[in-house]
Design a protein around this nucleic acid. Sequence first.
DNA 1: CAGTGAGCGAGCTTCCGCTTGACTT
Length: 770
Amino acid sequence: MIENLVIVESPAKAKTIERFLGEEYTVKSSFGHIRDLAKKNLGIDIDQEFTPRYIVPADKKKVVKELKELAAKSGTVWLATDEDREGEAIAWHLYRELDLDKDRTRRIVFHEITRDAIHKALENPRFIDEDLVNAQQARRILDRLVGFELSPLLWKKIKPSLSAGRVQSVAVKLIVEKEREIQEFTPRKYFRVTGIFAVPDGKGGWNQFKAELSKRFNTAGEARNFLENCKNSAFTVKAVEMKPISKSPAPPFTTSTLQQEASRKLGFSVNQTMSVAQRLYESGKITYMRTDSVNLSSLAIGTAAKRIREIFGENYLKSRNFTTRSKGAQEAHEAIRPAYMDQASVEGTRPEQRLYELIWKRTIASQMSEAKLEKTTVTIKISNAPEHFVATGEVLKFDGFLKVYMESSDEEQEEETRGLLPEMKVNEKVTCEEIEAAERSTSQPPRYTEASLVKKMEELGIGRPSTYAPTISTIQQREYVVREDRQGKEREMARIVLKGDSVSEGKVQEKFGFEKGKLFPTDIGMIVNDFLEQNFTDIMNYNFTATVEKEFDEIAVGKVDWPRMIRDFYDPFHAKVESTTEQSDKSKGEKLLGKDSETGKPVSVKIGRYGPIAQIGEAGDEEKPRFASLRKGQSLETITLQEALDLFRLPRNVGTYENEEVVVSTGRYGPYVRHKSKFYSLGKEDDPYQIGIERAIEIIEEKKTREKNRIINAFPEEPELQVLNGRYGPYISFKKKNYRIPKSKNPAELTLEECRQLIEKADSRSKKGT
DNA sequence: CAGTGAGCGAGCTTCCGCTTGACTT
């Protein structure tokens, strides 16, 4: 017999709460949702008012069985899941699935995991809010209908195994639209003029400072004219303006801002951030990491204040509580913060330590005073020109929170950090040492990184803290989007300089366009996007989620009947799915590029069975059409006729070696050399269109030596067992399976008996696991 | 691992949100 059974969602949370409660309480966790819609036949009876058919998924059977047994012998069951739509639904599913008795069941909620909050919650129980549950059911059913009707449509019209959904399809759309914006972008060149000036320092020397011209010039001619005018000009201070500025700290972390800052400051992927945070959470070092709240418990604010006083003094303290402004926030938890504010660092792996420190600094900084700066702006008049120079200086008067934490930004900083300006008075003469007009180019819009995509999705209210990372994985798994680096290119920029009495012109090499870890749409991504946009405009609208969320809110307060809402959505949606199934053609992104000058046949590109291909000729022709796969980095949208024709220059016969032909071509796994019916992959730096016989032979010979070194040891009495050298070091290969060799053993000296023992040990281990 | 892209058909794929392991290379 158990007096009280408390059920929460997370086992780590259960452990913490158990510590706060007496022996008469048993705390268990449900591990999230315990039931879901069946996968067969949508899991919804469309004709019966959309009645959902819920089942317990295989991996949840065990938890449900255990909880059910415990509940049966408990006096009171406390459903303490999160206070949001999903949490309410979990409580309701538990109530139903565990066959709980209404009189012995209580629903409680708390936003922070402190002894006080939990006891207060226990004193104020309520019952399950059916309206809120209905809002969740409507959300779940709508997502299922959209996903399970659109995806099969894509299988028919584009390619099997594709997927579409309220969240993922819009995430892909953001990336596709950004790419097209970049394609249409034409850079504009301009000249930015900066000058180096000086004023006497009063001790016989000079104080230098930099200033920028108020105007930018469009052409080299205008810039040159301006510099010529400056030659005999006098420069005087026209105005000196001083303005105090204060900067406030950013709020503590939510899932989204943690992902962004960990990406910018630590170079973590969104997935990496979440798994490191998960480990910190499980070991009790931070609060829950999937949250949209910037709220801190009063306990946390109190201990942070104490800590700030101790380290920095009273001056640096300013306690604040932040309010959340992001769309659709449900605020079931606190912000992400250290569990113990007085611990500035923790033990653990290097990534764990770094992420923890980031969280500690951000949280502490959020409770510190503003930074005070003084900004000085000096305007300099030019006697022979109507424009003027502007110099700005910033002096930090009080560092405040900057002592601990400085938020990063996605935009690249062009300005060098501005320092102090020398003292100047109005009408004072300044000496011009040098003026430079440097050619610049407007830059294209930046592509999304994983983290900046999450930021955008949060702004649009699309997705939840628990789904940002999985969604980004999904759209990459479906190959709608790839994460890639792009090498920078070089360009020549003009530079015109006035120094002394002479104006000189030169060129400067400049690197641009380097991108790391950016998201690019694939051809399939664009085709699927265009297909959905054309036929399901409303679902693809950035406001779709926001609009349905409003309706879910109405359901949650009992103003709207959920089957009614779903019916209003479903009928026109389903009709559109049906009509699109019948009417629209297969969408393969086919595009005619022009004619092949040799044969006069049409050259086109499209998505083939194995990816994007170029094609010469047509299917009905007497002669079968010729096909060639597009290369990495090429896309249906941007490939030119010439680039497409070049693809047909492969395979190339580059010469002979050991009396056999050497052929270079490209296949399913990239470019290769073929010799004596064996294949040799080309290196990254080799161009299959350029490569000659010498390099081809080199590649062949390199691989042969590697092969020779591959076999470390073999046993005549057991031909299926070999000790080999692989990509990850030496290993044992036996019956197509690979086995590790412990570091303590020398692979070359392993006996057959030792190998057999290692294999047996590994096999018995893996059996135990399954 | 590697030159594919005809056409048919069986059987499979798929959503979003809540949560942790269990897998190895």
